[in-house]
């Protein structure tokens, strides 16, 4: 059964049970133990692998060395035969036969090592897959459990406090209301800003001597002067 199926059947129990444990503590411990053991086996297998690989390489080197030796003695044998040294050639042939037997043994060993390497690599791959699977299952189980426990704590803290979760509708209404209020406020602020903006513009225009406000001072002064002049003229006349 996949871990997801296990979780789903565990979730059919009551929330309280789930909060307490999705996968019972014992099962979790067994899982953790299995992961631990698989990892140890993996480490051992990897160590074995390096050893066997070294042995395989050594066998290969030995075969190469023996090949050269055989070749060398063969040349000696030919030389002995050329000189009609039958006995010597016979001794050399014996030596070659020994070397060949030794080489055969090394070749058999090399094949064995190569097979061992392949099976160890297989084993390592399998063990790694098993560890990954166990770790994933454990993560799913622990996450589910942790989430349910957290929810339990959250429910309790909400139930006791003033912040008890209201109905979803009410929540939405309140958020919307606040949102509208905020939007209204922002709109008002914008209007206010625009108004201030206009005033600022008028002030700038006036400072630059543009617009109705610009020459007010001069206009007032001119008006007053004209009035004074007019008064004086009328005064003289009187």
């Amino acid at each position: 059964m996949s871990i997801f199926s296990k979780i789903l059947s565990a979730l059919k129990g009551s929330a309280r049970e789930i909060g307490e444990s999705v996968v019972d503590a014992n099962a979790t411990r067994i899982y953790e133990q299995e992961i631990h053991e698989s990892k140890a086996a993996l480490a051992r297998a990897k160590q074995d692998l390096t050893l066997v690989m070294a042995q395989e390489k050594a066998a290969q080197r030995e075969i190469e060395r023996l090949d050269k030796e055989i070749l060398r003695f063969e040349e000696h044998a030919f030389a002995a035969l050329d000189k009609a040294e039958e006995n010597l050639a016979g001794d050399v042939a014996t030596r070659i036969a020994e070397l060949e037997a030794e080489r055969d043994a090394q070749q058999r060993a090399q094949v064995d090592f190569a097979q061992h390497i392949a099976s160890l690599k297989d084993l390592i791959r399998q063990a790694e897959a098993r560890v990954r699977e166990h770790e994933r299952e454990l993560a799913v189980a622990k996450t589910t459990e942790s989430v349910y426990r957290a929810t339990e704590s959250i429910s309790q803290s909400m139930g006791s406090g003033a912040s008890k979760l209201g109905s979803a509708r009410e929540s939405l209404e309140r958020i919307k209301e606040r949102h509208t209020l905020m939007a209204d406020r922002m709109k008002a602020a914008e209007e206010l800003d625009a108004e201030f903006g206009n005033k600022a513009l008028e002030q700038k225009l006036a400072a630059a001597g543009i617009g109705a406000e610009a020459n007010r001072k001069e206009a007032v002064l001119a008006r007053l002067k004209a009035q004074r002049e007019a008064d004086r003229t009328t005064g003289h006349e009187q």
């Binding site: 454990l138 996450t143 942790s146 959250i154 209201g166 929540s171 958020i175």
Partner: peptide
């Protein structure tokens, strides 16, 4: 009304 709860769950 919509608080966020943050928890660390395994990984």
């Amino acid at each position: 009304e919509l608080p966020i709860f943050i928890t660390q769950a395994d990984s």
